[in-house]
Amino acid sequence: MASLSDISVTLEQRPTEQLIAVLNEIDSLLKELIHSDQQGTIDLRSLPLFPGDYDMLKQLLAEGEVSATLQAMGPSTIQETRVPGVWWVTHFNQDDEKIAEYIEITRLPSLLKTTDEDLKDAPEGLRNLIEQVINN
């Protein structure tokens, strides 16, 4: 019996209207960022993409200069694409299951900045480290 991968599936019409629409939306959000300093996001899980569109979009935007990994409640990858100002942000849970995925059009995704709350607790954490060094 043939396995699932043996069944030939031909994808119609490349590139799809959906893919072109997402690219046009990124274009218009980039212009908003340039002219009005307005940040934009596209929730990739809210789009009715054709199978194959996702891979094609990722391949097309590709990886740019900056790549960061956040380790908080599972990993997140924050990757600037080869289009400056267009970031591909993917959040995973502790089981490496994808829980959210965005294209962010911004100078810097906000999750990369240290938050005020964490900054407030930072001196105490540092003091503890200093005490450890002194006591050892």
């Binding site: 956040l70 908080a72 409640m73 906000s110 938050t115 005020d116």
Partner: peptide, 8 residues
């Protein structure tokens, strides 16, 4: 879990 984790 950090504030950043909470925001995620």
């Amino acid at each position: 879990i950090s504030r950043r984790g909470f925001l995620k």
